[in-house]
């Protein structure tokens, strides 16, 4: 959705505009937030953060500004910042250091560009291999092992019974492990 489309929809009905924006970008925002808070936040924390992001978007979106382009960048930025704040609040173990402290000079950036580039490449290969499994196996793997959903929960979104999902995801994970092994990747 573009900024212009959203502004036009807001003029007709803010409520409908919000709903469409939510339905269009809920998955996007949830993915961003989940990716950041997966290990340290509960599902409730993640959901609350997603709702918070949209509430902020609705509150702070300036319909008077003539901005053009896709609105996803705006929403994505809010989602990343919000998730980052919650991450820091709930999960960060970094101590605060005074700016006047001598230690400041010795502090290094948390970012290691080289290892991040390696990790990104590994992520790309892993996602390629998961996609190579084809559907529905790729989705079963992601839902079960990334999003941590139970077979019963997955059955709500794929046309399979929980039993079928358990059997199929078991086969899929074995196949994926073989592929990863061949590529020299261990998880």
């Amino acid at each position: 959705m573009t900024h212009e489309e959203f502004r036009n929809k807001m003029k007709i009905s803010p409520q409908q505009a919000h709903r469409e924006l939510f339905e269009t970008y809920c998955n996007y925002v949830y993915t961003i937030v989940f990716n950041r808070l997966r290990s340290c936040g509960s599902r409730e924390d993640i959901e609350e953060c997603v709702c918070d992001v949209f509430a902020d978007v609705y509150c702070f979106y300036d319909t008077e500004k003539e901005i053009s382009g896709d609105i996803s960048g705006f929403i994505g930025t809010i989602a990343r910042r919000k998730a980052g704040l919650i991450y820091k609040k709930k999960c960060s173990v970094v101590d605060t250091v005074s700016i006047d402290d001598d230690l400041v000079q010795e502090l290094r950036s948390e970012h290691d560009i080289e290892s991040e580039a390696d990790a990104n490449e590994r992520r790309r290969i892993i996602l390629d291999m998961i996609a190579e499994l084809g559907e529905p196996d790729a989705t079963l793997i992601m839902q079960k092992y990334y999003y941590g959903r139970s077979a019963k929960e997955i059955a709500e979104i794929v046309p399979m019974t929980p039993e079928n999902i358990r059997v199929r995801s078991g086969r899929a994970v074995r196949k994926l492990k073989e592929m990863l092994e061949k590529a020299g990747i261990s998880l």
């Binding site: 993915t31 961003i32 990716n35 950041r36 997966r38 290990s39 994505g76 991040e116 990790a119 990104n120 590994r122 992520r123 790309r124 892993i126 996602l127 793997i141 992601m142 092992y145 990334y146 994970v173 994926l176 492990k177 998880l187």
Partner: peptide
């Protein structure tokens, strides 16, 4: 299967 590596991913991956 441990997919922790997908956490904190770059924007492209997300």
């Amino acid at each position: 299967l441990n997919l922790d590596i997908l956490e904190n991913a770059d924007d492209k991956t997300v």
